[in-house]
Computed example of a mutant assay.
Amino acid sequence: MVSVDAILLAGGRGSRVDGAVKPLFEVGGSTLLAAAVDAVRAAEARRVVVVAPVLDASLDVEWVREDPPFGGPVAAVVAALSTVDADDVYVVACDLAAPAAAVRRLTDPLPPGADGACLDDGRRQWLIGRYRTAALRAAASGLADGGRDASMRALLGALVITPLAASDTVTRDVDTWDDLRRARGGAMTENRTLPSEALNDWSAALAERFGLAEGDIPISLVLDLARDVANGVARPAAPLSAFVAGLVAGRAGGSPADTEAAVAAVVEMARGWEHR
C-alpha cells in the first residue's frame, strides 16, 4: 500500500487581491484553505503540511515556512519536504476554487516509471500534482538557495511527470477579486436547492398569518439581496442583511419603494465590502 502525505501552498503575497490572504477567502461555506485540507484528507493523506504562517489554528495540520518568506512555490515545497515521509506527496496550491474535484483526479497510484502526475488543462498544472517524495527530494537537492524564486519547471522538468487531462473548471483558481466573485457565484448555484417559485406557498402563508397584502413580500428582491451579500461579504451575512433591510424599510414607512431603497442600500454596501 503506497502512503501519501500532502504539501499545501498557502503563503503567497496575494498581490492581485491587494495583499489579502487568499487561502482564507470563503467559498461555499468553507475557506479555500480548509477546503484544500478536507480534499487531501479525503484522498487519504496521512500528514498535511501547510507552508504559510499559521492562518487557522483550528486545522489539524503542520505549519512550516520557507526561509526567507515569499520565496515562491518551489522554496515552499523544499521547506516542507523535510516534514513529510510518505512514499508519495500531494502538492496543492490553496487558491483552488474547487480543490476536492481537483485532488480526486490524483488519487490513483502513479504509473510504473513515473515520478509524478499533475493535472493538465492544456497547460501543466504543476501545483495540482502527486509526486514520488524521493524524486522530489532528489530534484530539490540540485537547486541553489533552497529553490528560492525558482520555477516549478526547474524543480520538475527533469522528472517523468504524467499529465492528467482536466477541464479548466477543475483547475480554476482564485487570483483576482473577479475570480472570487465567480467562485462564490458558482458555489451558490451548486448549493441552491429551491427555485424562487417554490417559496410562493410559504410567502402566501406568511402574508395570511401577519395580515400582509399581496406584493408586500418581494421574493425575488430578497433573494437577489441574499445572493449579492453572500458573494460580497459572507453567506451568514445574507439573512442578517435581509433582516436589517426589512427593519430599515419598516422604519421608513414600509412601502414597496421603501423596501427597494433599503435593499439597494444594503446591496451597494455589499458590493464594495471586499475592497474596503
Rank of each mutant, 00 (worst) to 15 (best):
V2T: 13
R13Y: 12
R16G: 04
G19A: 12
P23R: 09
G28M: 09
G28S: 05
G29E: 02
S30Q: 09
S30M: 12
T31P: 09
A35D: 02
A36Q: 08
V37W: 12
R41K: 13
A43F: 14
V50D: 00
L59H: 06
W63H: 09
W63S: 01
G72H: 11
V78H: 08
A79C: 04
A79F: 07
D87W: 15
D87I: 10
D87K: 14
V91Q: 06
A97P: 07
V103Y: 02
R105V: 01
P112M: 15
P112D: 08
D120I: 06
R132L: 02
A134K: 10
L136H: 08
S141I: 09
G142A: 06
G146L: 12
M152K: 12
I161Y: 15
T176R: 12
M188E: 05
T189L: 12
R192N: 07
L194G: 05
N200G: 09
D201A: 15
A205K: 13
A207S: 11
A207T: 03
L212Y: 08
A213T: 06
A213N: 14
A213I: 11
D216H: 12
V222G: 03
V229N: 03
R235G: 04
P236D: 02
P236M: 09
A238G: 03
A238Y: 11
P239E: 01
L240P: 04
S241G: 05
R251L: 10
G253M: 06
P256W: 14
T259S: 10
A261K: 10
A262P: 03
A265T: 06
V267I: 04
E268D: 15
A270W: 07
